[in-house]
Design a protein around this nucleic acid. Structure first.
Lengths: 237, 237
DNA sequence: CCATCTAATAATGTCGATATTTTATAATTT
DNA sequence: AAATTATAAAATATCGACATTATTAGATGG
């Protein structure tokens, strides 16, 4: 038995470690879309040989975060307006489906998690609203915190669908959508108006959820998830 | 330019080749669920070194066809009744969604593909109905042919949704469902009754599609895709 | 000056070797 | 005899090296 509660005693392989790092670096835009991923550079950055790197890239290949061409190595998956649209709309459909199923399985535990994560999110948003300069380093961190909390709120709702397969799809689409957000969302697009709208959306959604109004909840989440898309749509890149 | 019409002049890497072979071997049950995938054995079977094999396995890891534990190597992904249920139901939901969107985008080209692939499928089924012994080698091949044609029919319908992301999800779920079919479907479960029911399902579905009756079509496809699940549900394994 | 061919340089994909860890087997103790 | 420990065998994860292929830079010719 293991004394430390959350530690998984068996160590992670290099390949497993580098998957999450590489993924972060692609999602957050450290590597630009379509950028060639030189093995020499990756070896230096992550301090390991080619074998674990290629295994990690093979995984990201399936997740469509990188592309490969034989004898020409790996590149970061390109971005396009068409893919942006596809990802955001598919994600909206999928999460809508999650919510429909979650309402069918609704129980007290589920409701509790929603209320709790909504509360946490409101607190984080409140903190952010008091930050004057949204370009400061402090604000950057708080925004990231808000993002994480926001995601946890949505996860709390969708996890009620009780379908690992569907949740895995949802998560994959969330990641890809977040990449476009990180790449294309200009700083000045995020203002207090956005957070206000978000909070209103959530309040409406929660009301529909608690009333088990499936149709309305699905429609609300669908529109809610398309909000960032509408902002991104006009972006140049 | 390339003279031979379909040849992609750049050769496939070993890793790319072995992905599809390994996948086939897992989906068709050559490797049993949970079976340990010894590198020595894989090297001998596919005639290559560990590097391309590990890269291929890394891809199948993301597709949840294998699992890995550090320092203990790869195993075939286990099966369970819970996963069987999840996969089949999620697949039914996803394909239902595909059809809803396809009807929204409906056009003549789409209708044509449906009619054509339905025709091909009926011919294949007719051939099969004339085969007496369903256990013969000939029948086995015809059944596989029917499966492929059946899949093409459904692909023709769903491709109308025009969403690469959604279709990718659908395909992944199809593969995983086919694994359970191959592993658990007893020979004697497939009889002419099954094919008759299938044909009736399809006729109803096509009628709903052509009439743009989205609600009905979604309900029909959902039930249609759960048919094999109902058979498999009771299987021992 | 631009295009084409050639030489060099660099990067890729794969293999074999190695250190480490796990598993199987034998020996020892209670 | 069962359980524990020690030993041997096997398997894994990673690295460095090599052959092959792609890319770049330079030279040649139009």
């Amino acid at each position: 038995m293991d004394s430390s509660p959350l530690s998984n005693s068996n160590t992670e392989s290099y390949a497993e470690q580098v998957v999450s790092q590489l993924k972060q670096d692609i999602l957050q835009g450290y590597f630009a879309p379509n950028e060639k991923l030189l093995m020499s550079r990756l070896k230096a950055r992550y301090n390991m040989g080619v074998s674990p790197l290629r295994e990690a890239l093979s995984q990201l290949l399936v997740e469509q975060l990188v592309v490969v061409e034989n004898q020409k190595g790996f590149r970061v998956h390109p971005v396009s307006k068409a893919e942006l649209k596809d990802i955001y709309h598919t994600r909206a459909h999928i999460e809508s489906l999650c919510i429909k199923l979650a309402i069918e399985n609704a129980n007290d535990e589920w409701e509790g998690q929603i209320i709790a994560s909504d509360h946490r999110l409101k607190k984080t948003a409140h903190l952010l609203s008091q930050t004057n300069n949204l370009n400061s380093e402090q604000a950057r961190q708080q925004l990231q915190q808000w993002e994480a909390t926001h995601h946890r709120f949505h996860s709390a709702i969708t996890s009620g669908c009780q379908s690992p397969a569907l949740l895995k799809v949802r998560h994959s689409l969330y990641e890809k959508a977040s990449r476009y957000r990180n790449l294309w969302l200009n700083q000045y697009m995020v203002d207090n108006q956005v957070f206000d709208t978000n909070e209103k959306d959530h309040d409406q959604l929660i009301e529909a959820l608690l009333k088990r109004n499936s149709k309305l909840a699905c429609e609300l989440i669908y529109q809610h998830l398309l909000n960032p898309y509408k902002l991104l749509q006009g972006s140049e890149f």
